[in-house]
């Protein structure tokens, strides 16, 4: 089969429970290579949990999940396949989660060396190039605590990209940032989208979503209530829940 016609993420009837709480309900979702998908919804709707299932940071209980043609199994029983998947799926977190004891350049070069087995020289060269790409090549030898929030998040993006992932997950990447720093992170993500990276983004930045998304997914109480191209979902939402959510977030 032609690789481009195969979805990079395929979820079927995926269900997740936290104890008695039913967090994800019968999720059906396919993501094609090159697609930029933005997931929106109220806090607690399950949108972060959804993308955290894709790289196995959250377990699910029923359903099937294929990522990069490898199956993730329910109850966290994926074993070696999970680590394989994670090498191909990068993630950027709300709290950056940079390694505070390592310099910026070491944060980025660690995984390519330890996981991919690159030489130190190759890893450093790639890391330096990625730092240039996210616009902070002069900060390579600093430690995360010496950087602003926006710079830290750009390092986190470079760190994930150093593994040359086929898919990037973003879990509210700008929610912990001061307002004046949101733009620089979104700019870097915009660049990445332009270059054709497959991206799944959980965000509250509706303007950004409208601009970069190929498809927007609205989640409510663990269910995909509605999805579609941004102009359709933002301008003519079909579902009443989508309408009231958008009315609340777009008012500001």
């Amino acid at each position: 089969m032609n690789e481009t016609t195969q979805p990079i993420v395929a979820m079927q009837a995926l269900n997740k429970h936290f104890g008695s709480l039913h967090v994800l309900k019968d999720i059906e979702l396919e993501i094609m290579p090159g697609e930029v998908v933005v997931v929106i919804g109220a806090s607690g709707s399950g949108k972060s949990t959804l993308i955290r299932c894709i790289n196995g940071l959250e377990e699910f209980q029923q359903g099937s999940l294929m990522v990069d043609s490898k199956a993730l199994l329910p109850h966290g029983k994926s074993g070696k396949a999970l680590q394989k998947i994670r090498t191909e799926v990068g993630m950027v977190f709300q709290q950056f989660n940079l390694f505070p004891h390592l310099s910026v350049i070491d944060n980025i070069s660690l995984a390519p060396m330890k996981v991919r087995g690159w030489s130190r020289a190759d890893a450093l060269e790639t890391s330096q190039r990625l730092l240039e790409r996210v616009g902070i090549s002069d900060q390579a030898d600093k430690y995360p605590a010496q950087l602003s929030g926006g710079q830290q998040q750009r390092v986190a993006l470079a760190r994930a990209l150093a593994m040359e992932p086929r898919l990037m997950l973003f879990d509210e990447p700008t929610s912990a940032l001061d307002p004046e720093m949101i733009g620089e992170v979104l700019d870097a993500m915009r660049e990445l989208a332009k270059e054709g990276m497959t991206m799944v983004i959980v965000t509250h930045e509706m303007g950004f979503a409208r601009e970069v998304a190929d498809r927007v997914i609205f989640i409510h109480h663990g269910e995909i209530t509605e999805q579609g191209p941004p102009e359709k979902l933002f301008d003519k939402p079909q579902h009443e829940r989508t309408q009231s959510f958008l009315a609340r977030v777009l008012k500001h």
Partner: peptide
């Protein structure tokens, strides 16, 4: 988050 970030990188 430190562990999650490490695992997400494939470590």
């Amino acid at each position: 988050g430190q562990r999650e970030a490490s695992l997400s990188l494939g470590l």
